Amino acid sequence: MQRYAAFLRGIMPTNPNMRNEKLRGVFEGLGFEKVSTLLSSGNVVFHAPGRDVPALESAIQQALNAELGIPGGTLIRTHAQLQALVDSDPFAGLTHCRETYLTVTFVRDAPKFVPEFPEGESTVRLVRFDPAVGALLTIIDNTDPSTTNFMAIVEKAWGKDITTRTYLTVQKALKKLGS
Score class of each variant (00 low, 15 high):
residue 35 V to A: 01
residue 146 S to R: 14
residue 98 R to H: 13
residue 82 L to V: 11
residue 118 P to D: 04
residue 178 G to F: 11
residue 26 V to C: 02
residue 161 D to G: 07
residue 158 W to V: 09
residue 108 R to D: 02
residue 151 M to R: 11
residue 80 A to T: 13
residue 156 K to T: 13
residue 4 Y to E: 04
residue 179 S to C: 07
residue 13 P to F: 15
residue 125 R to H: 10
residue 175 K to E: 15
residue 149 N to K: 14
residue 82 L to S: 06
residue 175 K to V: 13
residue 65 N to R: 14
residue 21 E to Q: 15
residue 91 F to A: 00
residue 104 V to P: 04
residue 162 I to K: 07
residue 24 R to I: 08
residue 176 K to H: 09
residue 121 E to I: 03
residue 66 A to C: 03
residue 150 F to R: 10
residue 66 A to M: 04
residue 24 R to F: 03
residue 33 E to Y: 02
residue 113 F to M: 11
residue 161 D to A: 13
residue 135 A to E: 07
residue 26 V to K: 01
residue 162 I to C: 01
residue 178 G to M: 01
residue 50 G to Y: 08
residue 140 I to L: 15
residue 63 A to W: 00
residue 118 P to G: 13
residue 22 K to Y: 03
residue 34 K to Y: 00
residue 138 T to Y: 01
residue 39 L to C: 05
residue 134 G to K: 00
residue 47 H to K: 10
residue 152 A to P: 06
residue 55 A to L: 11
residue 160 K to Q: 11
residue 39 L to S: 11
residue 26 V to R: 01
residue 156 K to H: 14
residue 130 D to W: 02
residue 53 V to N: 02
residue 84 A to Y: 09
residue 23 L to E: 03
residue 110 A to D: 12
residue 52 D to M: 03
residue 125 R to G: 05
residue 131 P to L: 06
residue 141 D to R: 01
residue 103 T to C: 12
residue 159 G to W: 02
residue 153 I to S: 12
residue 15 N to P: 03
residue 34 K to V: 04
residue 168 L to I: 15
residue 125 R to W: 02
residue 55 A to R: 07
residue 90 P to V: 05
residue 156 K to Q: 14
residue 72 G to V: 00
residue 38 L to T: 09
residue 160 K to A: 11
residue 101 Y to G: 10
residue 28 E to I: 00
residue 87 D to M: 02
residue 88 S to T: 03
residue 100 T to N: 14
residue 175 K to N: 14
residue 38 L to I: 15
residue 130 D to T: 05
residue 170 V to N: 02
residue 176 K to A: 14
residue 128 R to I: 08
residue 86 V to A: 00
residue 52 D to P: 03
residue 94 L to R: 13
residue 88 S to M: 05
residue 159 G to Q: 06
residue 85 L to F: 10
residue 86 V to S: 05
residue 78 T to S: 12
residue 142 N to I: 02
residue 90 P to D: 02
residue 16 P to R: 06
residue 79 H to W: 12
residue 170 V to E: 04
residue 75 L to R: 06
residue 50 G to C: 12
residue 123 T to G: 05
residue 10 G to T: 10
residue 37 T to L: 08
residue 133 V to Q: 05
residue 143 T to K: 09
residue 131 P to N: 14
residue 53 V to R: 04
residue 178 G to Y: 05
residue 148 T to V: 14
residue 87 D to Q: 12
residue 93 G to D: 00
residue 114 V to G: 11
residue 26 V to P: 01
residue 177 L to I: 00
residue 17 N to P: 05
residue 62 Q to S: 13
residue 48 A to N: 07
residue 89 D to F: 12
residue 77 R to D: 10
residue 75 L to N: 11
residue 51 R to V: 01
